[in-house]
Design a protein around this nucleic acid. Sequence first.
DNA 1: CTGAAAGCGCTAACAC
DNA 2: GTGTTAGCGCTTTCAG
Lengths: 340, 340
Amino acid sequence: MAVTIKDVARLANVAPSTVSRVIANSPRISEETKRKVKKAMEELRYHPNLNARSLASQSTQTIGIVMPSSGDAVFQNPFFPSVLQGISEGAREKNYALHMTTGKLEKETLEAVIHMVQGKRVDGLILLNSKVEDKVISYLRKMDFPFVIIGKPSKHVEEITHVDNDNVRAMREATEYLIDHGHRDIAFIGGSLELMVTVDRLHGYKQALKNANIPIKNEYILHEEFRREGGQEAVSELMALAQRPTSLVVVDDFMALGVLSTLNELGIKVPEEISVVSFNNVLLAELSNPPLTSVDINIFGLGYQASKSLIQKIENNNEPTKRIIISHKLVERLSCSEPS
Amino acid sequence: MAVTIKDVARLANVAPSTVSRVIANSPRISEETKRKVKKAMEELRYHPNLNARSLASQSTQTIGIVMPSSGDAVFQNPFFPSVLQGISEGAREKNYALHMTTGKLEKETLEAVIHMVQGKRVDGLILLNSKVEDKVISYLRKMDFPFVIIGKPSKHVEEITHVDNDNVRAMREATEYLIDHGHRDIAFIGGSLELMVTVDRLHGYKQALKNANIPIKNEYILHEEFRREGGQEAVSELMALAQRPTSLVVVDDFMALGVLSTLNELGIKVPEEISVVSFNNVLLAELSNPPLTSVDINIFGLGYQASKSLIQKIENNNEPTKRIIISHKLVERLSCSEPS
DNA sequence: CTGAAAGCGCTAACAC
DNA sequence: GTGTTAGCGCTTTCAG
């Protein structure tokens, strides 16, 4: 068996509880015993058994993440590693570890969450709110278990701490950018309306058009999957229209890539014949041909703030509900024509 | 407090130990009591406390991953999500969870590992052998703790289970591919020689040249970082040479991207003036301009087999040491000129 | 086939 | 300041 707190206690000639207090750096322990105990710990190469600690103290110093299923498209999208990187950095700074499980179907996901929560494997949870994990959220709320959402919850927005961009504004600005560049026929290529991010961005798009007195055309509004194929399909549809748009706002760089390649196949030049603004500003945006003008939503920041605020919530149970908005920034590249 | 095994026992009118046996699906329990106990568990919505279980059973059903530090370039490289996806899938199939920590410096990494291992947070470890984590490996060996390496260990190759490609052969083939296409001036752009992957691939490169009676030129062998900038620098150097190479083998798609962009800036046409073969075949390879001929090393497979074999090792302590070779495949695209 | 009881290694009252 | 003593919730001998 490994060396335990008792061994240390024996060697240092104190009680186990004293050792425990030294580990916790309790203020009411004399400097001398502290030193003595620490020496004993060194000597025996003592390392606490975290399971025992977690069992006794009801805390784990780890935060849980429910990943998309491994087959999921999300894995392909560079969004995921970036947000994970942010989460991981926020956790590391506070000495929290990460615990991840995957759920294929919604049902599996819920089970995985229950497993983590009831199993007391984690102190809190970060949800990558790709789909509307309604079941998961209501479970966590019922259990009063700390969690934060990256993105915007579809219900109870005021009662759930979440980290998000101001997607309405971001998309309004992106659209206005095109309007300022002389465009009036602007199409919107978004994801499923089940995703709040789509709802918000669509909203921003409409706002911008309305403000500029441009009528909204339903045939200019498309919903596809967040994948290259999605972008490809969208373009095919749009280009079949009698009146083709002269510019596109696309809610994801990956989709925009599909857009670009399809336009290329059709012999339609970007930005000469059609302008494209996209979202996320992942590395791909810079590398594509032409490089994409894209709204940087600071994905790392989303993850980072999510762990930060989750940890606050864990450590202070009556931390108020928060809504953290991460600022965005339009990064101009070469996919939009100059104002005429 | 949550519902415990005792509550279930009470409701089912059995002893706690019986409940435990039912959970473990012990064969020597009558079907009837099993049913009875299960019913009670349902009724109370019982979920085991995993910390308690881990403490008592000395096992966690969790595998640990040591990630590169969050600032690390590795995070940028699509290698990471893919390998994680593979690991995750292998773990999920066996109902293992993932536990990750990050280490910035080598020292931090070692501490994180010790924390996980002595803290009994994980049953085994997967090392992404980016750097030669010598300290970590010797620690794990000393502790006789299950671990597998993705990549090739720099020492004790025969005694450490690892999952790798046959990098010598892969690079030999890639080089031969260029030779078959009429090239004789082939440069090698690789990473640090501290990485076994570089050593092996360089070896394969030299083999191919030797077999074809092409003299090896040291000025054609470059070592840079696995980033775009690395590729850029390499090209600058090579193009300053009196006798420029007519083709390049690059050990990473990301570097190859840098190569491509720099060549483009210099006005050197790919593949007309110079041919490029690269490695990893991440999505980027397909999207670049021109699309890269790249060796697909099945990154997902590396991760997947790593968790599979780790779990085998965990569950059977005298599982033999294994070396698992994942097959590769050259994917032809447009970055190489046709044989003349 | 099932129950009783002794831990797993740690924390947290409660004493003194 | 420090020791004593119960647990935390589960598994696992050992009995029967």
